Simulated scan of single mutants.
Amino acid sequence: MSNFQLTYDALDVRDGLQVSRSPWGENDVLGRLNWMTDSTRAAALAEADGSSVFDLGVTYEVGMPCWVEAGDPKFDIYMTHTPRGTAIDRLSGADPGVHDRYPYAGAAISMYSHAGTHLCSLTHFGHNGMFWNGVNEFDHLASRSWTLGGVTPPIAVRAVLLDVAAARGVEELAASHEITVEDLTLTIDAQQTTPRSGDIVLIRTGRMRQWPDPAAFLPSPPGLGMAAARYLCEEVGAMCVGVDCGGEVLPPSEPGTFLPVHCYMFATAGTPMFENLYLEELSAAGVHDLVFTAAPLKIAGTTGMPVRPIAYPRRTGS
């Protein structure tokens, strides 16, 4: 088996929708992240030019865009202990007067696991009641979370930024612009940067220019269409795909579907997706060939992992 196997055997096919069997074993929920090894990570990091560092994560703050239409919680932060309050309520257990000299403050956060910059796991969307590698709610879902997934290895890999907005000569793609294969190939030709199998492919639509205004950022985003997603997964051989908004075009071009690109990428292609990446500084600097690093939070059983991605230019000639 080639390290970069791009299509997978079917566990279930109904109405043209395939759930694939993982070639990495019956308990696999990482999909193409299995392409990474200690040696591939070391090779990628050896190519990183540390003279420039690009932070691809957004700031988590009250009022930022969060997808709450289905009832999921927005991002929130609140104080659990304040300096004066702790001196009054003495919940810390310290003697009276101690916190006058040693003030204490604490905070807690709550949020949907797909808020802000995050990595979607393969247990996020599926087809016909089944997820990648046959994961299903009858065998793998406990009271509060999946019994598997949510923990990924540290990510360090070559990546390519496909700045579709810039290639199309606009600052931001129009609302509900469906990114096509033509958009991607035009961008590759314009940049003279070719993604290889095993790369992470980052897609810039320009929608991040509207962050953190929910009214401007969330409605009718541009994003990948199904043909473009298939091209990235089955022809380019992307390990992961990352987009500067929600990933796929909304509303979807095919009526009666619900986030069909996500469902295909996760359940059929085994390709995780980063969402809400901040790609504006990379675009402004004209950096398209890079080394991408990320350490998603290890949250057992979750469908989405908050992440702080960092990118470095890839050394010329590497």
Rank of each mutant, 00 (worst) to 15 (best):
D199G: 07
R90H: 12
M130N: 15
T7N: 08
E61H: 05
L141Y: 10
F217E: 01
V19Q: 13
N276Q: 14
D28P: 09
V164S: 02
A311L: 10
M111Y: 14
V164W: 09
A229W: 03
C245S: 14
N27C: 08
W132P: 05
E280D: 14
W24C: 08
G71V: 08
M239I: 03
S39W: 01
R21E: 13
C245V: 06
V236C: 00
H124M: 15
R90C: 05
S143W: 08
Q192L: 02
P154I: 02
G106N: 15
E182D: 14
E254R: 03
T82Y: 00
Y312G: 07
T303S: 12
D89C: 06
G246Y: 09
A227Q: 15
W35D: 05
Y8F: 15
S145I: 01
A142I: 03
A285L: 12
F75Q: 14
M36A: 12
N27P: 02
M111V: 01
A216K: 09
C245R: 06
V98T: 11
A238T: 00
V249R: 08
P221W: 00
G198M: 01
P309D: 07
S113T: 15
R21D: 07
R14D: 07
A174K: 11
R14M: 09
L290E: 10
Q192A: 11
L141E: 08
E178T: 15
D95I: 06
